[in-house]
Amino acid sequence: MNIIKAAHIFYEYMVRDENDKVIETTKALNDLSLDIEEGSFVCLLGHNGCGKSTFAKLINALNLPKEGTLLVNGMDTADGSLTLRIRESAGMVFQNPDNQIISNIVEEDVAFGPENIGLPSEEIMERVDEAINAVGMQAFRNKSPNQLSGGQKQRVAIAGIMAMRPKCIIFDEPTAMLDPDGRKDVLEIAHRLNREENITIVHITHYMEEAVDADRIIVLENGSIAEDLEGRPMDGTPKDIFSKVEDLKALALTVPVITELAYELRKEGLPIREGILTRKELVDALKPFFPKTR
């Protein structure tokens, strides 16, 4: 089943001058159609301004598409009466760890969502326990967020979403402001929630290495799915997408360094396969060419 179904959606940003006259319209989403299967781990890639964050906000019904329909867990985001249920089933983790924590105490913050949907106290307590355990923040539940590192704050934010028992979590560049440790933490949790709780993950990122373990990569450009140099959509497994090194570069993106090296070697005529993503794959691919032992 598809948890997210976007059909021909458009979205525009308008820049107005002092007199409220529109001086510029940017098409942030331009006839975007894509479906995301329940239980999958999908990475959205693209340079700044390609429309990926706009799309994330539409999934959460924070904005509504100007045209086209967007169904989240079978519910149309344009139907205002469903907004809360949509947000409950598709939670969102944002980029800045500080600007999404509301309360001064970790566990109270995790309770914020369930409190908003009016659950009884015992159930909130139960969900908060569960969510804090899921992100491994038990030792910090009575701490102030100001005492936590960036990565820990993002874990609290994830717990806040988990307490809503969502079917899907959209990660809108949650690692952009973190150090390497924090990034690793957040990514590990995202993968674990996907594996163990069967939560659909939509991960938006700039770091190509973070996309290597996804089930599927979708590259966006100018508000719709990007096309490779031959005009085919850039939508597929990491292996498929990272085989298209030239195409990615043309879209102002990079590939993971190992993939880049493999590509460079191939360009020199070394007959190794395309779409090598990990060190192990590259070592295995190179082994047949090792010089015979002296």
Binding site: N48, A176, M177, L253
Partner: peptide, 10 residues
């Protein structure tokens, strides 16, 4: 380069 996209970083 913190927070920039790949092109920005490069």
């Amino acid at each position: 380069t913190a927070g920039l996209d790949p092109r920005g970083r490069e």
